[in-house]
Write a protein that binds this DNA or RNA. Structure first.
Lengths: 220, 220, 220, 220
DNA sequence: AATGAATGAGGGTTCATTCAT
DNA sequence: TATGAATGAACCCTCATTCAT
């Protein structure tokens, strides 16, 4: 009915801007031919500013420089904007994590790398972080995500822990599932606090101390 | 403007039902004379079910068994319902934590107790947990809470960690502030996962394994 | 069903306070045993301040120092308050006009007296004036009043004009009905302007110049 | 905020229908392409019928043949409808008065012309007259208008009177300001009575007798 | 008579979504 | 594709009125 590329469009076709800049600043850099991306990035900014429920589709359209109706040519509805932000981000994060992990053998290094990537991704774009930490916590989204993309990310952590146990580095008495949650929760809290602190410090700097506590906590 | 006890009413006067039952089931036990509490407990149930933004004040009123307008005799507006849920719960949690901690000397025991109390409070009432984990994550609330009641709770954890360092039990290289966030984040994630798992296990059982990792992580 | 004295209670039983003070200030003078009057005077103040539609019955009750429900023991409903203000005032104004006119023979003097009484009544109580000039203009009230009490007042003016014509003082070519409206309209406009000027001058002082124009306008 | 032409749209661009027909009947003549005007004319009808406070915005929308929300595309809120009715009408009335007066030299003729225009404008559209005589008497509007557009109209009358005095036609002992109020009040009362009489006579016919009394009242 | 807590109908306004152009 | 005017369902909150005490 409505040619909506939001869910099936491969991230690679999105012509994703440089990973070294905040996502939501890239758009200001020059003419963005891809309206799908313009709208998505506008949604991140707007949702971060006002919250999902307090944002109007018209706000997103205005921020993206398109007409209200145009939003509906690229996204099924308002909710689809939020879901697409998640997919747009997580797809790439997973891809990148997969690549980076293959270059590492040590479970310790893998875990540190995962933590660094997590905090780097969020720390690079405060708006994106806000959307992930705040707006995507709506139960309906959380339930959806916990059984999908996010569980893949979780799997990386758990697998690294299991490898650590098999390698005799980590205590076998520890439940890898629980340990993965501990690490994820700790990192998640770092992001939340960083947002609330209004970016007074560098989020990536938190990777080391957090992983330090975690690895000491699970080591033999 | 209206006689709204929500913010100043001492929790002790609220005739709070038994701590061993989920808050939101107590109301079904019999006639509740306290309309303020009836409405608040109804709001927890309704917000947990539909989310704050998807809930209508009329839903809360209906669930509480009062007329729509009655809600506004006890609460300033819809948002006040959410804030009052937070205050209603956190006030008691802080009070309880304060009492329980005075009976303990060991930093390890204090930290375990805090974790147990946290998970016990949330694990006792799934609806309350949902409201705390999902609805109160709205940025406007988080900012408000992080500088108020919730910071008191954080202080408990940080203080225990500092005491552990002074007692020579914990590594001094560790930043107590960061460590507190790690523990809080880990516990928070346990609650979130418990909700998503639909109560398949006992949340309180997570206190030991989480604290085990954490204490090993910070110990000398 | 409801013992409402508002419409049939003779003004003489109301123990009307001194005519030399604004109605709405009398109440502050001392204990008012008559609740009917307390509420009515409060209504004048409140309606003058906020307008009828923007005033709440609760505002009137509070200003009168009674409970909300008490208002309904003395007045059928909110609208009855407004109607009663009209009757309460006009009954006395008519009575007073009737008395004062009997002492005068000259049509000129009668007309001046009517004008003076009119402006004196309104000029004595700004709140009352506001209610009469603004709130009672609602069409439903105007239609009701134009066929009742107010027409009696009109009759006084018209009769005086007719007497002036019969006495050979006023032009017979003039329609007494229209002339009465001209005078009434002129006086009415004085009151309205006085309210808008925020009482910068004495309303009664307008009687002479207005009547001067009018009498010259109709004289032979 | 919204593209609301109500306040700045020149009356000339509004494609105002023939001055010889009641404003509120014109719309029934055919398809009205101007939604702004459709809604404004509907508001006049609806407010005249039920009064401003008893009218719902939905009533206006329905009468105008548009959706409820459409009203808010052209008017800021319900109150703006009322204010716009005033501006819509008074702007043209002033313009017309200005034009007509320039063709006249005699103060007497000017005053008669102003009276005729006044009664003609109101007598042409009973609904408009009702809104002006009843709804726009709300204190908040009166205060606003008395210091704006309406004072221009007043100025016309006062200036004519002063010219009459300077020409030696009118008594110099008369205060032009007060005299202007007398005339305005008299005309205003004619309109009010005409409404209450339910159009039993032609309002414009009142111009001569009223002006006759007035001019005789002020003449030397 | 007096109270004031409780009621619940009612309405102004918003905004996601549609569709004619 | 793109627009943005138009739609109309939805909802928070107010407040006149009632009635048990």
């Amino acid at each position: 009915m409505n040619n909506r590329p939001s869910l099936n469009k491969p991230i690679s076709q999105v012509n994703r801007p440089s990973l070294n800049k905040p996502l939501t600043e890239v758009i200001a850099a020059g003419p963005t031919p891809d309206k799908y991306e313009s709208i998505l990035l506008a949604a991140i900014r707007v949702f971060a500013r006002n919250g999902f429920f307090n944002s109007k589709v018209a706000d997103v359209a205005k921020d993206a420089g398109v007409a209200d109706g145009t939003v509906y040519l690229y996204f099924k509805n308002k909710e689809d904007l939020l879901i697409s932000i998640f997919n747009y981000t997580i797809d790439e994060a997973i891809e990148r994590a997969r690549k980076e992990l293959t270059t590492l053998d040590s479970p310790n290094e893998k875990i540190l790398k995962l933590a660094a990537l997590h905090l780097d991704l969020m720390g690079r774009d405060e708006n994106l972080a806000k959307v992930f930490q705040v707006e995507l916590r709506q139960l309906k989204f959380m339930e959806q995500f916990s059984t999908s993309k996010l569980s893949i990310y979780f799997e990386f952590i758990r697998t690294a822990i299991e490898q650590g146990q098999q390698a005799g580095l980590f205590r076998t008495g520890i439940n890898p599932q629980i340990a993965a949650k501990v690490l994820y929760g700790a990192l998640d809290e770092m992001v939340t606090n960083w947002i609330l602190s209004r970016k007074e410090y560098n989020l990536s700097d938190m990777a080391d101390p957090v992983v330090d506590i975690f690895l000491n906590g699970v080591k033999k």
